[in-house]
């Protein structure tokens, strides 16, 4: 189980989208969210959805993966839908019962908000599905670097993230070992109510924490032994470089944004 652990939901294949600079992908994801919020009508959403579909296609992903990410937020989408449906008023009344009134505007807003949320999730999914955690960290470090002038610890945060990623499998491995060791001595992690089970976790957590601190200590020493002195003066084996394909991606995005804006201005498919 531990040997094939995948961190996050990164789907490792080689595709033009995977090869994009992580910074481009991060920035475009933010930009796509902006476009989704700017968009005022269903036609605009259509354009954005086509863009997402194109990315999915180019990234050799299955639409299934992107849709899977919707599941956890289904409740939120449903709640937004229902609230908007009942609370928004105006327009022709479609249905009325006791204090509940559903109007045309209400229905429209409800559907619109639900689609907006779904689009947001699908858009951000694209980033995590096509960018490995390590590339994501590199990208974030590079993007936040200008802020380090005003004291933002960009390098430190990136280093912490990558060390965390590095040690997650190690610590999971260790947790399993300790669990087995405690079970061999008669510890019972499965039976009893929630509180009992939480208590049973204690003999697992204490050694795990002790070992994590010991590891941190040794790692710090090993890093120091390899001349680590923080971010200044460091170089990278694979520095991030923008390529032509990044320009293409930005171009494609701008086309979509343009379409959304035009549709907005001419009120095509707008509420």
């Amino acid at each position: 189980m531990l040997n094939n652990i995948t961190l996050g939901q990164y789907f490792p294949v080689d595709s033009p989208v995977h090869r994009l600079d992580p910074r481009t992908k991060i920035l475009l994801t933010v930009a796509l969210m902006v476009a989704i919020f700017v968009c005022k009508g269903f036609a605009g959403f259509g354009a954005i959805f086509l863009f997402i579909l194109l990315c999915v296609r180019l990234a050799k992903l299955k639409l299934r993966f992107v849709l899977r990410g919707i599941k956890p937020i289904a409740v939120i989408v449903l709640l937004t839908f229902v609230l908007n449906l009942f609370l928004q008023s105006g327009g022709r009344v479609l249905w009325h019962w006791w204090i509940i009134t559903i109007t045309v505007d209400g229905l429209r807003t409800a559907v619109f908000m639900a689609i907006r949320l779904l689009m947001l999730v699908m858009g951000t999914q694209l980033l995590t599905l096509t960018t490995s955690p390590i590339a994501l960290t590199d990208g974030l470090e590079s993007l936040f670097k200008p802020l380090s002038k005003i004291g933002f610890p960009a390098h430190e945060l990136a280093m912490m993230m990558s060390i965390a990623l590095r040690f997650i499998p190690t610590l999971i491995d260790e947790t399993n070992k300790i669990t087995q060791a405690q079970k061999a001595r008669g510890a019972d992690f499965e039976s009893g109510n929630l509180i009992r089970r939480a208590k049973a976790m204690l003999p697992l957590l204490v050694p795990l924490f002790v070992s994590a601190f010991r590891r941190a200590d040794e790692l710090a020493m090993a890093m120091e032994a390899r001349c680590y002195r923080g971010g200044s003066g460091r170089t990278k084996m694979k520095p991030l470089k923008y390529k032509k394909r990044d320009l293409c991606a930005v171009g494609a995005y701008l086309a979509v944004l343009g379409a959304v804006l035009v549709l907005n201005i001419f009120k095509i498919g707008v509420l």
Binding site: R166, T170, L219, K236, M237
Partner: peptide, 25 residues
């Protein structure tokens, strides 16, 4: 051996020391 590897990929880990020294990519 576990507590002296920093990166999530072997290659990146081997590069770590050189990166600290500021060697050209």
């Amino acid at each position: 051996p576990d507590n002296q590897m920093v990166a999530t990929i072997v290659e990146e880990d081997v590069a770590f020391g050189c990166e600290n020294l500021g060697v050209a990519p």
